[in-house]
Design a protein around this nucleic acid. Sequence first.
DNA 1: TATTTTTACGCAAACGTTCCCGGTATCAAT
DNA 2: ATTGATACCGGGAACGTTTGCGTAAAAATA
Lengths: 349, 349
Amino acid sequence: MKFEAVTIKDIAKALGLSTSTVSRALRDSYEISPETKKQVLEYAQKINYRPNPIALSLKEKRSHSIGIVVSEIANNFFSQVINGIESIAYDRGYNVVITQSHESYHRELSNVQYLASRSVDGLLISVSAETQDLQHLQGLHEKGLPIVFFDRVVENIETHKVTIDNARGAFDATHYLLQQGYQQVAALMNAEYLSITRERLAGYKNAMNKNGLSFDPDLVQYCRHGGLDYEEVEQALDQLFSQQKRPDAIFGGSDTLTTNCLRYLKAHNICMPEDIGFIGFSNIDLSELLSPSLSVVRQPAFEIGKLATSLLLELIESKRPVKTFNTQVLSPSLLIGESSQRIKKAKKL
Amino acid sequence: MKFEAVTIKDIAKALGLSTSTVSRALRDSYEISPETKKQVLEYAQKINYRPNPIALSLKEKRSHSIGIVVSEIANNFFSQVINGIESIAYDRGYNVVITQSHESYHRELSNVQYLASRSVDGLLISVSAETQDLQHLQGLHEKGLPIVFFDRVVENIETHKVTIDNARGAFDATHYLLQQGYQQVAALMNAEYLSITRERLAGYKNAMNKNGLSFDPDLVQYCRHGGLDYEEVEQALDQLFSQQKRPDAIFGGSDTLTTNCLRYLKAHNICMPEDIGFIGFSNIDLSELLSPSLSVVRQPAFEIGKLATSLLLELIESKRPVKTFNTQVLSPSLLIGESSQRIKKAKKL
DNA sequence: TATTTTTACGCAAACGTTCCCGGTATCAAT
DNA sequence: ATTGATACCGGGAACGTTTGCGTAAAAATA
């Protein structure tokens, strides 16, 4: 029923050679005569022979492919990162296998195990919002599987990492809002223990302090599942807007959160920038076409993907075990639109 | 260097059994005594044994995984389709391997061959804008590889297909623009021979006729690479706007085209809806937040993914070769925003 | 008790490769 | 003519599974 691909055996049989000879001829071994090589190569070409990667993987325990784990591909940031990854991987002859955790720890676990059992040569991962236990990665890492973290990195595993200066991105955004005169800048964040949340929150706090304000926990809402479901964001924002010290600006802590926050504001008829100021992390490509145009913290997503992949391939192709790892920190950029331009309402003097 | 996974051999050795016995015990064969089974199962559990899927694939020539080929994942429509695919596949115990053709025929070919050689059990594909030669798919199909086409389908391969009523989507959009009073409705389309292009163009023409207008080829621009690169769209639009019968409205033929068209209009300071009316295919989730809010033809992307996957799994798991195939046609929906609301300029009577 | 049946397990081949280890011509040098 | 080297090639194991077949021991039957 299933197609029978042509194998080395077929070539051997047809040419009256052994499989060893054919294999060697194909790999251009020195102990095969030029004539035989020519014969084999031509015949292989003719019948369109392709080595079976599964057999190769089984034997060599490597697959010339790398695994990717992200929370969601329907996400501007991650899909851009993936394009960066692919651009490098493809050039270097590696295939990529993309999987999504949907912010679920169990899904991530299952994906990682699947990829490992498929003998991927390395792993590129941004952990899920739920991930706290790192056994699954720790184990693979100790057994020598090359791993490079990006975006959401973890502390306890020593390997290459690629992030951006999250604190600065958050600082710049928050600082800008405060400088515009917004008083109550709320932060809509991802799960509390994620690296990106901690760092961005640090930047947020820092901006508050620099502007003479003290950190107010009531102004921070965490979305334990990254706000993938609109309902989660809705609940968080309902909470923020229900308290007496109503925020007059929001800092959106991730691409997904920003998008869903905008949807909330629209649904509740809360207008930027007059009712609320807004700046958020987002790699949406149409931010300047939104109404009002959106102020965003943009990450160099494509670059992150390229860099992470280069580092991973370095690990994979290194002859000797790599002992020194580094963390590359790229820079986010703050793009100002109208959503953060405070309009001074009729001032009461 | 690479981790040595625990194998059936290890279990056999540890328990003083043969690999056959262990294998059968794990598969709960009737010819293994309950005690042995228990012993094996417990030990396997203890040392966290997982069957090696590569060895299985090699032997069984199936992998419990399905391959996806789309042009681009950084695309609202496709990423939503993929989520639909995954939601079904995951429930049914299948893994998905996502690949991108980037609208390149060669990339598609390479991906398809990779997936086939990786023994995917079936293929879900929306062909690239460049794809005209179907040998690569035809061959696999004849050899019995289950394939389901979605979105951009092909005629010459008889199998299940999932599309939407493209003609109606295009008709509705064009008709709406004409009814609004726009006179010169241009069409910005994908590659000419794609199914979606042909069908959508048919709907466009039909609307023209229904409104007493004849089809004008000069009002149609094709983007041979799907407008993935902004430059391609820019060139197409430059062309449209440079001719004497300047269009006063545009129908955007795909998600990517719509996005890049908006970018163009913004860059050239052409305002919707007064300078130009616009409706386009798009699954962007923020269309109502754009300025002006965007009129779009939206596809039930998640549903398409789910349906295509169900059909594929039906093919894969069918005992006997399937002979009758059907094409499922879902409905697009026209969501009207401000971008298509013609503002009557100071009329000259 | 002798024979048949059942139960429970092991052997070995197969999937498509690679590669170690041989082996046999051929030919030049002694 | 004998040796040694060189050039080419084949046999077979291994990777981790599954599975058809064979077979010992145990149980059932006569």
